[in-house]
Design a protein around this nucleic acid. Structure first.
Lengths: 239, 239
DNA sequence: GAGTGGTCTAGACCACGGC
DNA sequence: CCGTGGTCTAGACCACTCG
């Protein structure tokens, strides 16, 4: 039944021990796909622990997408366990410097304009209005590392109007001066245009990973940015 | 101080209420980047709740990448909050059917062979040995939806040798017969080859998103699969 | 209405790790 | 060593939701 490697001693089960025991039962189909698990209280009795401990174990299994829990409905084994992948999106300067490279930044274009429809698509109900567009390159050892096309909301962050974005990236300024409480992400492949290829220093029509991020504070739009990575860029996750 | 929208009433703070209050203080730089927070017990006293409740709030802030906690070291505001994105990787049949399409499957190639080096790179210390390679198309309304190039470990899952993979996808068989307890993911952009373009029914040299997954059970390799999506495929996440 | 999970408490002990 | 977070308990009440 699992070797209980997480328990401190036999008389006091840990939540990890309980979790592993239940996980094992799911893997062995003692609790098969779609099956209903015993009530927390019952399991607590079986394992000789408090109901809180079972709860802690169950929350972990739920976070991992193995079970579903509903008040009154009880706990159920998912028919198909969810595969959830968590990626960490790094701060660009930090990522570059952690690779032992010198970070650099170069402003390409800046103007106030009306965002095109495909950008507005990220904004939900947010009213259409002119925004500050900033296109810039992030460099590693003086070579292009990432290209970003960003739209900034001057209504939400008026201070941006006074920042010299040729010296400091909007990314960096925002990290230090404007927190967010919501972030939408979109990830897809993109064939670079001739213009983008020139800026990035890659072959024309190369395939690159695009990361689109839209951030908000208290339901007010801050910025939407489309980031083009180098063709060899990979996102890694271990579940 | 935040409007405590998560508290049931003023006399009994909820962990979400406490979390939001602390979050607000971080946003307002009452607890600035790199600062140390008061001990849990102290905060519990301030909020008039049990230490357990503060713990629950802190764990959530930690999961969201806003703070770091260490025994004896205390709780600290991260200099740069982590941006974590969680994506759900769907079961293919389910994903297709949820879009209202008919799911289909077509085996392209199957053979036992030695996996090439770039595939072995996903296997860590796992010994090199012949594996079952399966290339197949997943269809939506009879049109190509995804292409997968998969390597299966016959040592770990001998039963696979007897499965007719021209009728049922390895994906589906594995979901029903072989659970995993570890999954490594890798995500990148790829320019399709002429061969892949022909199979997928897309223009040659098109950019597509590739999802590589390697799964394990009790430290034994199960399978490694490289999935090519359609050019318009996007992964979405809301943090 | 009633069964089930979700949360809170007060107190205890443990484990990690900085000093 | 000893301060701090991590976990466990036993019991209580609450909130959601299914039948």
């Amino acid at each position: 039944m699992g070797n209980e490697s997480h328990s401190r001693n036999s008389s006091q089960p840990t939540w990890m021990g309980v979790r592993d025991a239940i996980h094992t039962r799911i893997l062995r189909r003692d609790y098969g796909p779609g099956a209903r698990l015993p009530r927390d209280e019952e399991l607590a009795g079986e394992f000789g622990c408090a109901r809180t401990t079972v709860q802690r174990a169950m929350r972990d299994l739920q976070d991992r997408g193995l079970i579903e829990r509903r008040r009154k409905g009880g706990t159920w084994v998912r028919h198909h366990p969810l595969t959830r992948a968590t990626f960490e999106i790094p701060v660009i300067r930090q990522e570059v410097e952690e690779k032992g490279c010198t970070y650099g930044y170069q402003l390409v274009h800046q103007a106030v304009a009306m965002p095109p429809l495909e950008v507005q698509a990220n904004f939900g109900n947010w009213p259409t209005e002119p925004m500050l567009q900033v296109q810039a390159l992030h460099l590693a050892d003086h070579r292009p590392y990432m290209y970003e096309d960003r739209w900034l909301c001057l209504q939400t962050v008026p201070a941006l109007g006074t920042v010299d974005l040729s010296r400091q990236s909007a990314n960096e300024w925002l990290v230090h001066h404007q927190h967010y409480d919501r972030c939408d992400l979109r990830l897809y492949a993109h064939k670079v245009t001739a213009h983008e290829a020139g800026l990035m220093g890659v072959a024309s029509a190369e395939a690159v990973l695009v990361l689109e991020r839209t951030t908000w504070i208290e339901s007010r739009l801050i910025t939407s940015v489309r980031t083009l990575t180098r063709p060899d860029y990979q996102l890694l996750a271990t579940t």
